[in-house]
Design a protein around this nucleic acid. Sequence first.
DNA 1: GTGCGAGGCGAGTGAGTGCTCGCCTTTCAC
DNA 2: GTGAAAGGCGAGCACTCACTCGCCTCGCAC
Lengths: 193, 193
Amino acid sequence: MVETVKPRRRQARGERRIAQLLDAAAKVFAAEGYVAATMNAVAAAAEVSPGTLYQFFPNKESMAEALAEQYLDALSVAQARGEGAEVLGVPLDDVINRMVDPAIEICLANPGFEPLFSWSDRLRTAVVERVDDIIARRVPEIDPSRRRLIATVTVRIFAAVLPQILATTGREQLEYTRELKRVLRAYLLDISD
Amino acid sequence: MVETVKPRRRQARGERRIAQLLDAAAKVFAAEGYVAATMNAVAAAAEVSPGTLYQFFPNKESMAEALAEQYLDALSVAQARGEGAEVLGVPLDDVINRMVDPAIEICLANPGFEPLFSWSDRLRTAVVERVDDIIARRVPEIDPSRRRLIATVTVRIFAAVLPQILATTGREQLEYTRELKRVLRAYLLDISD
DNA sequence: GTGCGAGGCGAGTGAGTGCTCGCCTTTCAC
DNA sequence: GTGAAAGGCGAGCACTCACTCGCCTCGCAC
């Protein structure tokens, strides 16, 4: 039997609380990491009692998922500014820039992203699917299962260098970013050219 | 004032217990991950009481460090079988094979390695230094700080693909391994040639 | 204005953690 | 043989965390 989720009517105040809680969660996740972050700390950061928090999120995981959803939307928006553009005729460097730069911008603007990205399979898989899609458009003749493999490795590489980029600033941050792009370019050149 | 560590006399039985405990720890870390692994579980896996465990390791972290030390030794031994060999005149592929293959072998033989590798900065740093050293021998003219950057990224890439290699078997495992080598080759070719 | 459900509170619960302590057993140098 | 130190035990301490529950307040449809 299917569990019928009764859609609880929500007041404007409630919607605001949710946003406020997600905001606080992002801050705490960023500061402590997902595992170490405590729900009480999130509630405190939102200046709200634990009970209030649990009125909107049944458990810790559901908070993480809601945040992940939010970030995924942000990614869509950011990459829509150029991803729709042609992927076939342009140099690989441009495609990489159009993928990596907005992603890093989002990660810098939302410090909660990275801890969630390492934790949530769901979030990583969603990103893998995006990359897979772009590869499919650029190199249509490639075998789908091999394409998936490449997309997975590509995202893993991104996730691997990301902490270094976020942990540094200024020149060093730029260096790591350039290095990330160099890796991706070198790796993907083997395939698309 | 320097803390003088008094070297407690250890019986043969004690040495055996230590090995047995590290073995159990590796199993539990592998099954649960470092953070989720509990000391009581390690003690139980070693068929020993928690009190006994704490006779040999003052805390959880010290267990992890002892294990890391052990793995580092294993890495040294495995890579000594060919690392001493020339790094200059040979193709990059050979160098990569001689680095990656023993490392993966060890990871497969010691399932406790990976969780520790993601957790322990100490272990990762030690590996970075090895890679740095090899790059220095192969490309002596490179700037040391840039070399360190490259070594760090290289190790991060390895750490990123490793879970995929360990999580799969057979054909898929081979594919991921090949892909890892392809990434490294493509990335490092830019530098050494 | 009244009633009802959404919003809010925060001390408290219970499960689970790393780790301890008092006490017993084994080992071994002398 | 004997005594001191090493090895061993396991109930349980102190603490943390996700989550709850009873009670109160606020917003709004009627």
